[in-house]
Amino acid sequence: MNILQALFFPPEQPGGVSSMVPYVLERFQRQGWEMELFSLPKRIRGKGTEDVAFTTFDWRQYAGSPVVDKYIQTYKDYVWWTKLRLRKTYDLIHAHHPIAALVMKQLYPQTPVIMTVHSSYERELILNGKIAEGGPEQAFLTSIYGELEAKVDQLLTVSHSFKQYIADYVQDPERIGVIPNGFDEKRFRPSPHENAVPQLISVCRLVPAKGLDTLLRACAELKERGRPFVLHLIGDGDSRPELEQLAVQLNIYEETIFYGYMLHPEEFMPFFDVFVLPSRAESFGSVFAEAALCWLALVGTNVGGIAEQIENGVNGLLVPVDDAHALSLALEKLILDPAYRYHLARAAGEKAKKTYSLNRVIRQLKAVYEGYRK
């Protein structure tokens, strides 16, 4: 079979789609499958001019919103770039973004298109304060799920909780398949070590949705109780200035290191002790599986895909969203008890290897792809 993996922007950022699809492609190619990757370069802006029309709703009722207008222009750009660059046909297209899926089905109407919904753009925008809940932008973006259901041949997503979320916006949610993200174990090299001071690490975009303000407040409580730690924050984003200022105000700036963006944080992670990310929402939370494969103890919030990865007290600790005190107590428990920390880390690593291995993803995708073999 000749299969196209259609991404949105190039896989340059760590986490999620970027940390999986290129490895999936490489593994399939090594097994003799004909497969290639396609994406829209970030330099392509404002090139597309063709009209956009959806069959399940009229997007023009939302025109005038900067978010909606940018989405539609990006759709037009994806059409322009696809027509310019793709000259061959495919037996199957697997898209990893709604724009990629809808454009591919528009330009290749006779080709089966599978779509994996990896995340919720509207929830991210709401949590990051970019759009209002219940506003026209949310209505537009959630209508896209119904358009996908009507157009593509098969919908997949990455967690059961996210499938439940999408269910409110489609006609037949039972047709949505679930294939969690998978990771190549060879990328992760756990390193036995002893840190005199417990080292906490978080890897994410620095935006409100990730709850890092809650993490800083929890760490301030740890310091007030005399618990030693160093907090390492890998990533960048709009919230960095505010977070740095908050660390100063909370008197934990000396204990907190802001690294900025890092291409391969998994090479850095094995030398830490605890991975913590108090997200306010996560469709899957790939970085938790990556941290588990590095043998770090996990602390996360009881939401979405995080709660599917972590069984509280068995392979990590879960706390409520926006509860800095509960988060500080969970971190304190791991700081004070290295043996318990080690036990949770090993359990997390074993579950990640068993449940989120790249081999499992390849087997599941093969079964889906084979269903479309002519």
Rank of each mutant, 00 (worst) to 15 (best):
N2V: 06
A6S: 11
F9C: 12
V17W: 01
M20V: 15
W33R: 12
K42Y: 00
I44Y: 10
G46D: 05
K47L: 02
V52E: 02
A53W: 00
A53S: 12
R60Q: 14
S65R: 07
P66R: 11
K70G: 14
I72Q: 09
Y78T: 13
R87K: 12
Y90I: 05
A95S: 14
I99R: 13
Q110E: 10
I114Q: 11
S119Q: 06
L127T: 07
K130M: 09
A132Y: 09
A132F: 04
E133K: 05
S143L: 06
E149P: 13
L156V: 09
S161R: 04
A167F: 00
V170T: 14
D172W: 02
P180D: 03
N181H: 11
G182W: 03
E194W: 15
A196R: 06
I201N: 13
S202C: 13
C204Q: 03
L206I: 08
V207T: 14
A209D: 01
K210H: 08
L212H: 08
R217D: 08
A220S: 11
E224W: 05
P228S: 04
P228T: 02
L231T: 10
G237D: 09
D238Y: 02
P241K: 12
F258W: 03
G260P: 06
L263V: 03
E267G: 04
F268P: 15
M269F: 10
V276L: 08
V276C: 12
A289Y: 04
W295E: 15
G316V: 07
V321S: 07
D322R: 11
I335V: 15
Y340F: 11
Y340L: 05
A345V: 03
A347S: 15
A352Q: 07
T355K: 06
N359M: 01
R363E: 13
K366P: 05
Y372M: 04
K374I: 06
